[in-house]
Amino acid sequence: MRWITLTTLLSLGFATQVTAEAGGNAERGEDLFRQCAGCHQVGESAEHRIGPSLNGIFDRSAGVAEGFRYSNAMERTAAGGLVWTYESLDTFIENPRNLVSGTRMSFRGIANQQDRDDLLAYLRLFSASPANIPEAAPTAKGLDHDLDPEILSISGDPAYGEYLSNECTTCHLLSGNDNGIPSITNWPVEDFVIALHAYKNAKRLHPVMQMMAGRLSNEEIAALAAYFKGLDQ
């Protein structure tokens, strides 16, 4: 989304509401959202990726986005009646695991209150009602890539992926729990393949992951993606 679209929204009268409720700067929030965009999309045609689409998140019950597979931890918390209000979202974004211990959301949180206000002001723009979702491309940082479509289209063998996953599970928990090492369970195949190739090609910087991905073939990456996508929790 660009500032122009935000301006359009402001002209439609959402700004008053946003400012009044949140005291946040939605424009700044859009910048802050970049750190979320690896996993979450928002906007028109936003889809569930590693995390659920965040359209209409305000005043929605937790854990109900259709077609998204939540962690057991999130489902448990949702069953306890969690609703995404400004306050609960604020608490969650401050430190996801304080609110939902065991969530697969691999995010340390945002300590700064103003940053959270700004981010929520931005997200609020996509929540007034479904009709008000602005016409903007979904955020797609996690999907930015120049990967050969042929590599992306390889169909992986999950049985081989299961064997290869032995190398992943020394650090990554199959349960999807995350405490310092991100969850890789139930990712969309495409995101998984793109991420591993980004490490393999040294576009993502983590040295352990660069080393691990460095010797995985295209077929092996596809196999791993297929295995982790199909995991039961």
Partner: peptide
């Protein structure tokens, strides 16, 4: 350091 804590959980589960 945080990563090492996550690794501990991972390898002991493994």
């Amino acid at each position: 350091y945080r990563e090492s804590v996550g690794w501990y959980d991972g390898i002991t589960a493994d």
